[in-house]
Design a binder for these strands. Structure first.
Length: 425
RNA sequence: GUGGGUGUAGCUCAGUGGCAGAGCGCUGGACUGUGGCUCCGGAUGUCGCGGGUUCAAAUCCCGUCACUCACCCCA
């Protein structure tokens, strides 16, 4: 019996995890500089939390959640990060401890969808939430921060889309307007759009069916129905983005499948790299009503989430950096033991050291050193031990010299310091 | 859930009825302890699985499973 990973849940082997770490490091740094602190929440939450926050009639809740019952508890593997963040914010009464909270997170999420390029069942998101600030400046700042991060990562062909859904009341008015617009022509719509007309008319705007296009183009725009306050907020956002010089497009057709969004909605897409049909790198928006609806105080909030696997697809290929290391090639049992000690000393000085204890001819040991692209190789045999030295080979330079056994570790570390400084610069 | 594509060595793939293959990778050797190149050798296969047709099946037929891409939806 051969085991495979569960469908849609993939391993990240050490040959690939370097890319992950670089991406994560850039994200940590970006958010820390913007004043966000890292939040870690459990992967498992009560099922009810997601039903309440994401919405009962969304695709995620209706058919994509990994839910199960354990004794009395109904539990679900988190399909996204915002619900858990808001739950933690409310549970720990953070609102009464500080006026504004800026949190970021990263980790695995789970949705039982059919996997395809850029979409897995266990996938990874990095995201952030900002609580307590209702103004459009924080919206603009977040979008600009993310745009900057993507640029620094080398993702090209970025396309920033923004829209405003207005307040809850505005949304209700808009929904009614859409029903009025589409109902007389319901027969001309695609089957799924006809279904959405009943369940969630906003999402007809998302339809890609060509036959729906003319009716969608003729549909009223949410922007026409915005209240005075909604409009001021949206204009404030645009003014700030313009001031920052962050390119954006207002896209009145931008809607989301999650119920909780209000006012600002945004998405950043890219067609760069190996990105397939799933080209939305990140999406987010304001959810001013959610803290309240999960039992907390009235509290405005905005957040975003990005798909790590998609970001990695969009990233330009980069050569994996070679870490300077010393490879110990001992000949014989006594030399092998001596190398263990030397390697430990080198590591204590902060450098990577590998001891090959597999034996074999010196030729094969050197081949292994080459295979690892080790700049330094230390050969130790009986004659070296007898003289109290080791033989150092600088493989790239084709040079060799002898080092006294008792100071070898320091000298090796010093050489590796130089190499590390060289490769970093 | 629906539709398309693909399953042959660790990887990328060739092989359309007649002995299971190539390149890369791995590994051993070419002066008893000196590397990358070169040369010679070696290991790794239920040809996804099950059935059928045939003297003969990786190849044709039926079924099945897996992977993958796309729709839907989303990050």
């Amino acid at each position: 019996m051969q085991f495979r990973h569960v469908q849609g849940m993939e391993d990240v082997l050490p040959t690939d995890s370097g890319r992950w770490r670089r991406l994560e490091a850039e994200f940590h740094r970006t958010m820390q500089l913007a004043g966000y602190g890292e939040l870690r929440t459990p992967v498992l939450e009560h099922t009810e939390l997601f039903k309440r926050s994401i919405g009962e009639v969304t695709d995620i809740v209706e058919k994509e959640m990994y839910s199960f019952q354990h004794s009395r508890e109904h539990l679900t593997l988190r399909p996204e990060g915002t619900a858990g963040a808001v739950r933690a914010y409310v549970q720990h009464k953070v609102a009464s401890a500080e006026p504004v909270s800026r949190w970021y997170y990263l980790g695995p999420m789970f949705r039982a969808e059919r996997p395809q390029r850029g979409r897995l069942r266990q996938f990874h998101q990095l995201g952030a939430e900002s609580f307590g600030d209702a103004g459009p400046l924080v919206d603009a700042e977040l979008i600009d921060t993310l745009y900057g991060m993507l640029s620094r990562l080398g993702v090209t062909e970025l396309d920033v889309r923004i829209n405003s859904l207005g307040s809850a009341e505005t949304r209700a008015r808009y929904r009614a307007a859409l029903v009025d617009h589409f109902t007389p022509h319901a027969a001309e719509l695609s089957a799924t759009s006809q279904e959405r007309l009943q369940k969630n008319p906003l999402r007809i705007l998302d339809s890609k069916a060509p036959q729906d296009r003319p009716l969608i183009d003729a549909a009223p725009s949410i922007l026409e129905l915005l209240s005075e306050e909604d409009r001021a907020h949206f204009e404030g956002l645009q003014a700030a983005l313009t001031e920052l010089g962050t390119p954006y497009t207002v896209d009145p057709g931008l809607v989301r499948g999650l119920d909780y969004y209000t006012r600002t909605l945004f998405e950043i897409r890219s067609s760069a790299g190996d990105l397939g049909a799933q080209n939305t790198l990140l999406g987010g928006g304001r959810y001013d009503g959610m803290v309240r609806s999960l039992g907390g105080p009235e509290c405005p909030a905005i957040g975003f989430a990005a798909g790590v696997e998609r970001l990695l697809l969009a990233l330009p290929p980069s050569p994996s950096p070679v870490t300077p290391l010393v490879f110990f090639a001992p000949l014989g049992a006594a030399a092998q033991r001596a190398c263990l000690t030397l390697a430990r000393q080198v590591r204590a000085l902060g450098h990577v050291a590998l001891v090959d204890g597999r034996g074999g001819s010196l030729k094969s040991l050197l081949r292994r050193a080459d295979g690892l692209r080790a700049p330094l190789c230390v050969v130790v045999g009986e004659s070296e031990l007898a003289r109290g030295e080791v033989q150092l080979k600088q493989l790239e330079l084709h040079q060799q010299s002898s080092l006294p056994l008792d100071t070898a570790a320091q000298q090796l570390a010093a050489l590796l310091d130089v190499l590390a400084a060289g490769s970093a610069g």
